[in-house]
Design a protein around this nucleic acid. Sequence first.
DNA 1: ACTCTATGTAATATATAATTTGCATATGTT
DNA 2: AACATATGCAAATTATATATTACATAGAGT
Lengths: 65, 65
Amino acid sequence: MKNNVKKIRMKTSMTQQQLAKKVGVTRQTIGLIEKGEYNPTLQLCVAIAKELDKTLDDLFWEVEE
Amino acid sequence: MKNNVKKIRMKTSMTQQQLAKKVGVTRQTIGLIEKGEYNPTLQLCVAIAKELDKTLDDLFWEVEE
DNA sequence: ACTCTATGTAATATATAATTTGCATATGTT
DNA sequence: AACATATGCAAATTATATATTACATAGAGT
């Protein structure tokens, strides 16, 4: 699942650690999601989107490879 | 997780069974998602959205109670 | 060189999404 | 009445998302 989380997170100059804490998961989980190797749950996707001030579509919809 | 899946699915006059088959899960999974008692995975959300010709935001973003 | 922070990654454990099976009811049809 | 289809719901099982712990490397600062 490719996505825009890493790109957007870096624009906010948040670290994986900080984002992880805010959305209530571990740093490793964020890392794997950014890498595209994870299939996160909807709740987590929503939490990440809100924390980054984006919508689900912004982060996860039809992201080109 | 409230969402618009049931409303949109009914507009297409698809049954839970048919949608389930198209996205590769069971009828029960679709039922629970529509009921809002499940926290589906992103892949499944995307599959449902594509099958219903909607985006993630249409189905799962800020759905009022 | 050393230390600290950010990140990548791997193994094992735990929580939970999803399956399977079964039974219920409501509705439509013959 | 009998039968089929669509849906709701519950218990037990399986698959997998996430946690935990640990070790690695690269870069910035002192």
